[in-house]
C-alpha cells in the first residue's frame, strides 16, 4: 500500500480530493454556517463578513451555505445517475455481447435510436416531457447515458468472448453466469473505472446546465447551475454571485477528469509492464 502511494502520488492525491468532495457533500448540513434558504432582504448583496464568509445574494441568503448544500444536488445526483446508468448499461451490454442473437439485435437497435439524437437535445426533450425538476432531470440523464455504457461494454464483451480462456471455461463446464461473473466483468473493470470518473464530470455539468435553463432544480433549493442563473441579473454589480458556483463546477469537473486521466495512465502503464514481463 505504502509503495503504491509512493509510486502513484498524483493518483493518490486526486483520489483523496474526490473522497474529500464526497465527505464535504455528506457533511454539508453541519458545515454550512447559515440556513441556505433563509431570506433576509435587509442583508442583500453584502460582501464577505464573519457571519457570511462569501457574502450574501440578492435575497440576503448565505452564498457559502448555498454552495455547500448545492453540492448535494450536483454531486449526489451525479453519483446516483452514474450508478444507475452503469448498472443498466453493464447488464444490457454484457447480455447483448455474450448471448448475441435477437437480444443483441433488439438492444442495439434501441441504443442506436437513442444515439441518433444529440445528447443535450434529447435530455431537454425528455425533461420537457416529464416536466421540470431534479428527479426528472436525473431520470432523463440516466435514460440518455446507459446506451453509451451498453455499447462500450458490448464491444468489450465481444472481444473478450473470443479469448481462449473464455472458450476453455466453457469447455471445462463453467456456466454462462459464472463466465460473465468470473472472467468477463473483472476484466472490463479497469476501463469501467476510468470511464466512470470521466462521466461524473459530464453528469455534473449536465445537471447544472439543466438547472441553468430552469428545467432542473427548482427554487428555493440551492444548486450550482441554479445559482449561476440567479446571479446572471447581477453580473455587472456582483459578478462573484456567478463566479463562485461557476468555479465550483469547474473545480469538481477538473478533479474528476484528472482522476480519470491518472487512472487511465495507471492501467495503461500496467499493460505495458505486462508486455515487458511476458518474455515469450
Amino acid at each position: 500500500m505504502r509503495t503504491f502511494i509512493k509510486q502513484h502520488k498524483l493518483l493518490t492525491f486526486y483520489s483523496v480530493l474526490v473522497l474529500l468532495l464526497f465527505v464535504v457533500t455528506l457533511l454539508a448540513p453541519w458545515l454550512a454556517p447559515n440556513n441556505p434558504t433563509t431570506v433576509n432582504l435587509a442583508l442583500k448583496l453584502q460582501g464577505p463578513s464573519a457571519q457570511y464568509p462569501l457574502g450574501t445574494d440578492h435575497l440576503g441568503r448565505c452564498v457559502l451555505s448555498r454552495l455547500l448544500i448545492g453540492m448535494q444536488a450536483s454531486l449526489g445526483s451525479a453519483a446516483f445517475i452514474f450508478v444507475c446508468a452503469l448498472s443498466i448499461g453493464l447488464m444490457a451490454g454484457t447480455i447483448a455481447g455474450y448471448f448475441g442473437g435477437w437480444i443483441d439485435y433488439v438492444l442495439m437497435r434501441i441504443c442506436e435510436t437513442m444515439m441518433a439524437f444529440p445528447n443535450l437535445l434529447l435530455v431537454i426533450g425528455l425533461v420537457g416531457m416529464f416536466g421540470p425538476g431534479l428527479k426528472q432531470v436525473v431520470l432523463a440523464l440516466i435514460l440518455v447515458q446507459w446506451v453509451y455504457y451498453a455499447r462500450i461494454f458490448r464491444g468489450m464483451v465481444l472481444s473478450l468472448k473470443t479469448e481462449n480462456y473464455v472458450k476453455v471455461a466453457r469447455i471445462n463446464g463453467s456456466s454462462s453466469f459464472k463466465i460473465i461473473r468470473k472472467h468477463i466483468v473483472p476484466n472490463i473493470m479497469p476501463p469501467l473505472l476510468v470511464m466512470s470518473t470521466l462521466e461524473m464530470g459530464w453528469s455534473i455539468m449536465n445537471i447544472s446546465s439543466m438547472s441553468f435553463l430552469g428545467l432542473g432544480v427548482q427554487a428555493p433549493t440551492p444548486e450550482w447551475g441554479m445559482m449561476i442563473l440567479e446571479g446572471k441579473s447581477f453580473v455587472r454589480t456582483n459578478i462573484e454571485l456567478m463566479l463562485y458556483p461557476g468555479l465550483c463546477i469547474m473545480l469538481v469537473v477538473i478533479i474528476f477528469n484528472l482522476l480519470g486521466e491518472s487512472l487511465a495512465s495507471l492501467f495503461g502503464v500496467k499493460k505495458q509492464a505486462l508486455k515487458g514481463k511476458e518474455g515469450l
Partner: peptide, 22 residues
C-alpha cells in the same frame, strides 16, 4: 452435456490467451 464436457478437454496454441490474466 455437462457430463460429456467433463470427458473432453482442450489445450490451445496460445498459452497466454488461454488463461485469465487476473
Amino acid at each position: 452435456l455437462k457430463q460429456l464436457r467433463r470427458e473432453l478437454q482442450v489445450v490451445f496454441q496460445d498459452s497466454l490467451s488461454a488463461v485469465d490474466p487476473r
